[in-house]
Design a protein around this nucleic acid. Structure first.
Lengths: 192, 192
DNA sequence: CCAAGAATACGCTACGTTGCGTCTCGTTGA
DNA sequence: TCAACGAGACGCAACGTAGCGTATTCTTGG
């Protein structure tokens, strides 16, 4: 499934790790500056100082390269992990605030928009994007909080998460202004 | 702003309405079968039996043509209007159910995914897509319901709508299975 | 033990294809 | 009469594939 990862050890020259790193770095850099749809394989190859065929040898599409770049953590900062202070509402609010804060910095909204577009065309990117935004921790925390009685026991976990991330995605897509209370309001809205 | 609409009355031949209709119909048909990123101006022209220049004369981009096709109602059925029985929760549930139902029919999820992708790259398409999904009625109804005390008076209208549509978009993007209670759960979650 | 050989990755260059957006052409129609 | 139309050629960019010579690495056999 995940392309571009280590090959089984056989004869012949080994895969060049430096080429792989250069490709991912070039992808991250070009993606950030030009966006997903202006990203080209030839552009990546040129920026990375690598032959086009070296990309095609290991990845089947632009989306695959982007997905792996995302996995490698070169596209989004790692700061979107959900904090764990024991207070779910506070943690969620902080998490949303860091996301909205990121969206508010100039140039970042188009980056997320581009990532959503990439996710629309490539499920692998979608899954990795969810991961990068902290969806898995979200699931665990909300489920546990419901079980522990910290929030309404019948909270529909899946729907809550989709509404949360969906709201963030919509903000990015529409570029709607970020009200200062958005994070608090959203958490209050969704966690009763 | 809205391209492709009436020209100022001058000398010479008038704009061909049949060409315009053929272009929009071809766009709708190709979009539905091949998706947004495989949609090409040359393909539309060929399918419509029209010269490429006739498209470029009236629209500036692929996105513009798609946006107008959306306005014309040729891409999405008109059935996503929010019903008005006086009971907001019931109306929202019905609205969500028709959306989720549409998403569940084979071939429709990719259509929405493609539309989201188109919206990501073209704000005009985004705005029209919101319209087609009934966002404006949503705003009015939720605001009125809050004012009338039918729902919590402090309901953050903008956040609620973004969470609602965002949840639908996430379903389409992730292709997650549609649980039968999803609509009810979502409405209960957001409207307390 | 170590050279020969096989297998593979790499950079490079070139090719045919597709779609872009622009630009003439005659022709047609209000 | 003159702009809109169809047809289609043009240069450009990027696609994905192929073949080349070179470098690297494992396997084999004298």
């Amino acid at each position: 499934m995940t392309e571009g990862t280590a090959a089984p050890r056989r004869r012949g020259a080994a895969r060049s790790e430096s080429a792989r790193r250069a490709i991912l770095a070039a992808t991250a850099s070009l993606f950030a500056t030009r966006g997903y749809d202006h990203l080209t394989i030839e552009g990546i190859a040129a920026e990375a100082g690598v032959a086009k065929q070296t990309i095609y040898r290991w990845w089947s599409s632009k989306g695959s390269v982007v997905a792996e770049t995302l996995i490698e953590g070169e596209l989004l900062p790692g700061r979107f992990a959900l904090p764990d202070t024991g207070n779910l509402r506070a943690d969620l609010t902080a998490w949303l605030e860091s996301l909205f804060g990121f969206l508010g910095e100039p140039g970042n909204a188009p980056l997320i928009t581009s990532l959503v577009s990439a996710a629309a065309g490539n499920p692998d990117v979608g899954a990795r994007l969810d991961d990068s935004l902290g969806a898995s921790e979200l699931t665990i925390r909300i489920r546990d909080a419901a079980a522990a009685g910290e929030i309404w026991a019948d909270t529909p976990v899946q729907e809550t998460i989709e509404a949360l991330i969906g709201a963030v995605v919509m903000r990015a897509l529409r570029g709607s202004p970020l009200t200062p209370d958005a994070s608090q309001d959203l958490v209050r809205l969704l966690l009763r």
